[in-house]
Amino acid sequence: MIDLIRDLSPGLATLLTNPQFAFIQLMNSISQGMNLFIIAAGLSLIFGVLKVINFAHGVFYMFGAYVMYSVSQEFGAPFWLGALAAAGALGLIALLIERTLFRQIYEAEHLMQLLLTFAIVLIMGDVAKIIWGTDQYSVSYPASMSGATDLGVTFYPTYRLMLCLIGPVILILLYWFAERTRWGRMTRAATQDREMLAALGVNVPVIYTSVFVIGSMLAGFGGALASPFSSPVPGMDATLIVDCFVIVIVGGLGSLWGSFVGALLYGLVFNFGSVIFPNAQDIFAFMLLLIVLLIRPWGLFGKPEAGGH
């Protein structure tokens, strides 16, 4: 039996016979998934409140990775300072963009908003080239996490282990913000009926700005965290944004839990898919997306669109 499987897919045979290998694949899935979750959660948050699909989210992620490189490698600051600087820088950029451009078109059609974010992609992509050139940079792991940790079953890179933990921490933080704070209640109300909220005297534009800034900070933070293994280089945004789309659509646009589950599923499908059928991992990710969309067009945790057919 195992010989037959080995003939069909050597990778699958290894998975079945070597538990350590399978465990490492599982951990890789989770760590990649959690890194993507941090970014996708920002995208989903922005969509949930502003109803804007932000194509520029990928370019924000790329800027996060570049800022990380500059702060930690060029200025020699500690890794975590670099990650915070990346989040902060993207927060500022987002604030600027939201105040000057987005505000003009909240009432416009979705197509217009989507294309506005695409214009930002084009311009910021060039800005990154002007600042950082076209070289591929490397960012070193934080000193305390450059090694591997003994998990009993096997050793596993400490940095990636940390990613597995930081994802749930961000999830809990966002959940707490959304459910337990005044800001969270307001944003949830804004997703449902912005006119009503405005009529109640709530400053809706401030809520929008804050959501856009926080969502974009998550992209910058996620880019900084990804930079040690996904080296900053022009064009890294274009594929990342598609991965994020897959995740938030699978999970359900606007759903926090959805992006968490979507990111995990993506990590699993991508990593196990590429072991079982090497070179087809992208196809698996899109197949996942299509299967979910065919069964639940609004995603696993999403709600059916109102007035649709």
């Binding site: 989507l114 789309f245 897959v246 899109f286 067009p297 007035g307």
Partner: peptide
Amino acid sequence: RLTDIYFAMLTLAF
């Protein structure tokens, strides 16, 4: 089967 942003996203996915 979908409209609006969901339609756009599905065409993108395909």
